[in-house]
Design a binder for these strands. Sequence first.
DNA 1: GTGAAAGCGCTAACAC
DNA 2: GTGTTAGCGCTTTCAC
Lengths: 349, 349
Amino acid sequence: MPRKITIHQIAKEVGLNASTVSLALRGDPKVREKTRDRILEAAKRMNYEPNNLARSLSNGRTRIIGVMLSDMSRFYEESLEAVFTLGEAAGFTISVRFCSWDQAREKAGLHSFVSNRIDGIIWGPTDYNTAEIAEMDALLHKFEVPTVMYGLPDDTQSLHCYQIGLDMQKSIQVGLAHLKSYGHTDIALLAATEVQGMFGRMYRRRMAMFRDAFIAEGLHLDDRRIFEVGDDNCGGLDLALKLSQMERSQWPTAIFAADDLLARELVKSFKTLGVRVPEEISVIGYDVFPWAMGGQLCSVNLNTKEIGEKAIQMLLKCINSEHPQQFDQRVEVLPQIRLGTTCGRPRSR
Amino acid sequence: MPRKITIHQIAKEVGLNASTVSLALRGDPKVREKTRDRILEAAKRMNYEPNNLARSLSNGRTRIIGVMLSDMSRFYEESLEAVFTLGEAAGFTISVRFCSWDQAREKAGLHSFVSNRIDGIIWGPTDYNTAEIAEMDALLHKFEVPTVMYGLPDDTQSLHCYQIGLDMQKSIQVGLAHLKSYGHTDIALLAATEVQGMFGRMYRRRMAMFRDAFIAEGLHLDDRRIFEVGDDNCGGLDLALKLSQMERSQWPTAIFAADDLLARELVKSFKTLGVRVPEEISVIGYDVFPWAMGGQLCSVNLNTKEIGEKAIQMLLKCINSEHPQQFDQRVEVLPQIRLGTTCGRPRSR
DNA sequence: GTGAAAGCGCTAACAC
DNA sequence: GTGTTAGCGCTTTCAC
């Protein structure tokens, strides 16, 4: 038995023509049911596996959607799951590339997408507004590869791609407004900024946005109210310990943790040390962990599931349309306050 | 300007034949340098992007390696990075599929790899020894797609694929032996087993292996020495608190945490609560976090980087060889004790 | 060195 | 309903 079976061999086997086999395999109603059954039976028996290269070369589409990501960050987990679910339901295969925050690899990966003639791209870029990004954006546009960039913090008007926007500063403001609604004004910030590499860079960027958000909400963020720790999910204990050595009258009334895992550890540590949350101090988290603390943690959720859904929906619309221009260039995904039990009115001082 | 440029259009532009252009683009020495420069210049100017579908259909290989994973688990991070680095250095594009622990999706993904005629597969299966896995293994074998399965706990002799083995029980025994070498015999186990879904399943499986490993090392594991928590990286504090309410004479002399993050939190919590590690109690972790606690944590490292390296090296060897049978069917990757400062001799009782 | 021609496996238009 | 034919864009063999 020959190794790679083609439709011609199946055709010969059942005494028909290759094009009939082709039609039958794709379930075309033109071919009689009995004929189709014979063909399918032979295909299965001969271990036929269709050759997508030939198929795609011939009909001009691959039914593959490429996803370009910087790393296997938790940030992408939920959105990617949404992309899979909706993309596969629409008959597409999802192919992922990672670039490890390396722009050369990112570029090479996107080129490979183009060379392999995938039908569309979802792209979470390593950085924004750099020359490389603009160059790839222009290339993808020139090749008419439908592309959705997602997780973009700012409106990057110069790009041609569709964009799923995520206004981080606004989402922080949402959290601050939530705390203000309880009456908090003395709010501290717990953030991991001493992390090395790209993660650290991300955290530091996030920190800058926190500062801006405080100002935008008319709040004062004293430098002594900023607690920086050297690890993304192991600094809560440090802060709880630090505070427990201070007089309570000196405490802030609420703490905004820049990461849900930090917040989770902070709350647990407070409880361990006998500090009541939220009676003595309120805690709010920020990020992408809806499951943190079994839903008890109050947090600003970045809603990444919706980001993924919007991205794949936009892309599918664009792929299936003749006039992709008619769609909105940019869609904003709004964060959601996830109510828990860790925020309350400030203690009386 | 037409949208998709082909070598024929370039040929027409420079007044040559398409086959010359084809040779020139691939840097064949047969074509004169001056001619090649003219061709490359035209290709760049016209924004030519090669069509891999046509190329692969013609020459029979795609230069793509497919990686099939269950999810974006931290377990895969390092190994995947190794696969990228070595694979790309060898001129391959790495394409990743995730199946979210769904065997139907896993199967579909592997089929798509075959249909797209990728040159080889690295596969971390969702489960072992099931009919589905065996079926896909047989199919991949029949299609002669070189395949390396990795992270396999047991010797699965019935499979045709190359295997990178990881003997979890032995690696736990390595950790236990390390503790025994200090003189510990009263060793407790901290594990997260109340986690939902596939993670929980994995943790429970890990738990069973811990029991077997204790027995194999001639140690007694009393049920009261097993501390199960409901979260994969937030249970350390609970245990530290629990122990601090017990008389120290009742304590175990060492704790084996089934996860580095658990271990890390445990050590930090001990320190917070005034318990000296390792003077009063030793802690050893287990998993894939070489960076946990800045290298201070003593741990059994599963060595996933080497798993990835071995996998891609085996695969490349197999792809480049005419006689893949000559290589070993299965390679074992051994865990390493990562020495830290959290293990020492047991306190005198 | 360069060109001509066949073919990779499939699809799609059109005959019959 | 089924067969015929002409590509899809590239590589490869063989002339010249």
